[in-house]
Structures are given as C-alpha cells and as structure tokens.
Design a protein around this nucleic acid. Sequence first.
DNA 1: CTTACATATCTAGTTTTGTCGATATGTTCT
DNA 2: AGAACATATCGACAAAACTAGATATGTAAG
Lengths: 100, 100
Amino acid sequence: MQLVELNKALANDTRMDIMLWLREPEKYFRGHKDGKDFSEGVCAQVIQEKVEMSQSTVSHYLAVLQRVDLVIANRIGKWTYYQRNDETVRNYLSQLQLNL
Amino acid sequence: MQLVELNKALANDTRMDIMLWLREPEKYFRGHKDGKDFSEGVCAQVIQEKVEMSQSTVSHYLAVLQRVDLVIANRIGKWTYYQRNDETVRNYLSQLQLNL
DNA sequence: CTTACATATCTAGTTTTGTCGATATGTTCT
DNA sequence: AGAACATATCGACAAAACTAGATATGTAAG
C-alpha cells in the first residue's frame, strides 16, 4: 500500500470517475446486454461506452487501477468484469488520514 | 476544491513528505536560525535543506501545494514561512470519503 | 477449424510533470 | 545606493503520463 502510487492512480479525472461509478454501478451504467447483474463487476465494454474514450485507453486505465488494487478484474468467458476493491479504498483512506 | 487537482498535488513523494512533515514541524525540521518558532510556518530554506533538492525545485513544489491551498505562505521580511492548511486537508479527506 | 468478438498489449506522437541552473525580484543591512 | 541574502520565476531538457490506432491473444459460436 503505497500512498503516492494510489494518488497517482487517482490523479486523473476519468479514473476517478470510474472509481466513483463503480461504487453504484446500477446508478451509472447501462445494463449488460445479456442481462447479467453487476454482482461480479461491470464489463469493460460497458465502462468504455460510458467513458467515451478509445477501447485501448480505457483498457489501459483499468489496468492502472488494477495494478494498485483499486479494482478487481474477473474474467468470465471473453468478458472482463471490473469491480471496486473496497478494502483497498478503505485502507487508502485511513492511510491518508494517518499520513496527511 | 477539485479533488483530482489535489490528488495531482499529492502524487509526488516529496510533496507528500512535505505535507506530512508540516503536520509536526518540531519533529521533522531543524529550528530556524534566528530561533523563531514554527507558529507561522516553516521557512522555505529549512524545508529545502530537509528535502535535499535544488532551491528552485523546492520553491516550485511549494508553489504547487500553495496553488491548491494545501499550504499557506506567510511572507515576513525576506523569508517565506509555509504552514499546512488544515482546513483544505480536512475538506479534501471528507470529499474523498464522499466521492471515492 | 474458421470466424467473430472482447480485451489486452504494442507503438508512437503529444502533452504534462520533474528537475535544475540561471536570472529576477524583493528585503535587509551598511 | 550597493552588497548580501531569501525566494520566485524563467528557460531548457529529461522523464513520465495521456491517448489512439494497430495488432495480438483468448474465448465462444458456427
């Protein structure tokens, strides 16, 4: 848990948005085409559509968030579902409280 | 209070350190040469000495922190004393709690 | 096994940030 | 006014981040 690395990951509007949206997926994302709920996360495609940036960029952003453990990726079939890692978020916030 | 701007300001080890150190100046900095206490902040020179980077770089970092209101600069004579802006820090942390 | 599709990775150009030395500004002391 | 000093700003180069298109990889469907 490196505080500054986490700050870097969140030093970008789009990535911050994604983290916010993933807290309440039903509120921000359209549903999955196959009707699957968000219990295992939101599929990359759906996130990309919302972000309105290129597929490669969004994929890269998700990789950045994943590298610092802010999201968890679940690959199911050809889809990857991303969900917030609330534990990391909690630790991050309490580390900030302590260190800032 | 733009969350992401604050994250950017803190997405750097040195700037994060400075914020941490300014929370307890007596603990981290040597005293001022003229014996002045830290009640109005820590003089830029003393910060620079601790950071061990060039004067211009440290001055620039302090300007970055000041731009987002994380520190307050008090110019007294030819010295500038920097202190944490605890209000901004508090708002930042609570905004993060809300938005992240 | 070939095609179609979702996602990841690679390549590259652009923009932003990091960092320093040099110079400018402002203050104090003589 | 001039010297000495603290800090800020400027100019430049290096490193990192942003972003997209092209391509590769992995999976599912015909």
